[in-house]
Every structure is written in C-alpha cells, then in structure tokens.
Amino acid sequence: MLAFVMEELREWRERRMRKSVVATVLLLAAVSAVSVLQPLALALAATGAFIVLGWTEGNRYQSSLSSRRILLSFPLSSRAIAAGKAISALAVLAFVALAAAPLLALSAIAWGVRPSAAAACVLSWIACYYATLCAGFASSLVFPGSDGLPGAFIAALWLASSAFLKQLAPSNPFAQVLAILKDESGRGYFLGMGATVLVATAVLAAASIAISAIRRRQHGR
C-alpha cells in the first residue's frame, strides 16, 4: 500500500501540485485582501477551496485517463487501494494546508480566534475534503464516461440541501465553520462532521467494491 501511496503522491507532485497550491493560495490571498484577513470570510473561502480540491483529487479515474489504468492494474487488493487513495489524498491536503497555513495563522492571530475554534475549523475542512474526495473517487470509478457529473450532482445536492434544510445544517461545512467562528453551540456540528465522515467512508467502501467489480469484469473479458 505504501508503494501505491508514494506513486499517487509522485504523480500529484509532478502533475498537479503547482496548480493546486497556486490556485488555493491565490484564492485565499484575494479573499484576505478584500476582507482584511477576516477569519469568517477566509474560513468560508478555505472551505470552498478544500471542497473543490477534494473533488479534483478524487474525480480523476475516468476511462480516458491513464490514472484509471494504473489504479486498476496496481497489484493490491481493492480495499488497500481505496485506503491508500484516502491516505495519499490526506497527505495532499496536509501539503496544501501547510502552504496556506501562514495566512490562516496570521488571520487567527490578528482577529483573536481561539485555538479551539481554529482546531474545530481544521476538523471541518478535513471532513469536507474527505467527503468530496470519496464522492469524486466513487463517481469516476462507477461512471467512467461521465466526467463525474452524477457524483458532482449528489455532492452539490448535499451542500444545497444542508444549506436550506435546518435539520441537515450541521452536516454543511460552510454552516460548520460559521457556527464555530461565531461561537455558537457546536455539539450538533461535530456530530454533523462525524456523520459526513461516516457516509464518506461508506462511499469509499462502495468505491472499493466498484474496483473489485471492474477488475472481475476486465478479467472476465
């Protein structure tokens, strides 16, 4: 599995690292300049950036891409591949977050954000990144010719419904960071993060089953 993780990270470093880092950093810097490092604006922008980053990291195993062939032919069980994908993607998140960390720290210090609130925001970002990563990963495997549209639709539905339905609000990453930074009662939002991670893990498990099915079909041919 370590070999798979290293291979994924190597590929990311050579092909997508600059794009991911520069896009995230530019977005956050632009929001900082407009809002004078206002943590609420910055946290919302970071949430959006990590959602998109998670999706692009997951949704890159379409039938037209060589990454799909490498993934399916890697000599590992489908479960190990799914787990390796999650680990490598979290390493990618850690690197991008490290690049953006000085800006986020500057904002937190300048506006006096409590360390516990900052830590809760980081948890929320990890949860939403992981959710869209799993959604994109499963979508690109199950619908190889669709450019990930069905998965994107479901992810958008999740974000929209949780934005408009009060009962689902705790699972909305934007609502989570708003609640954390505005010092509202956070227990429901932590449950929402937990539920998001659980559902995403179930989707990752489904992706692992999909890998097995695709492999069986390929060998059957």
Partner: peptide, 8 residues
C-alpha cells in the same frame, strides 16, 4: 496585514 499577505 496586507503587506504581510503580499510578502507571503
């Protein structure tokens, strides 16, 4: 603050 952001 903006100078610090620009430098970074």
């Amino acid at each position: 603050l903006l100078v610090a952001v620009a430098a970074w």
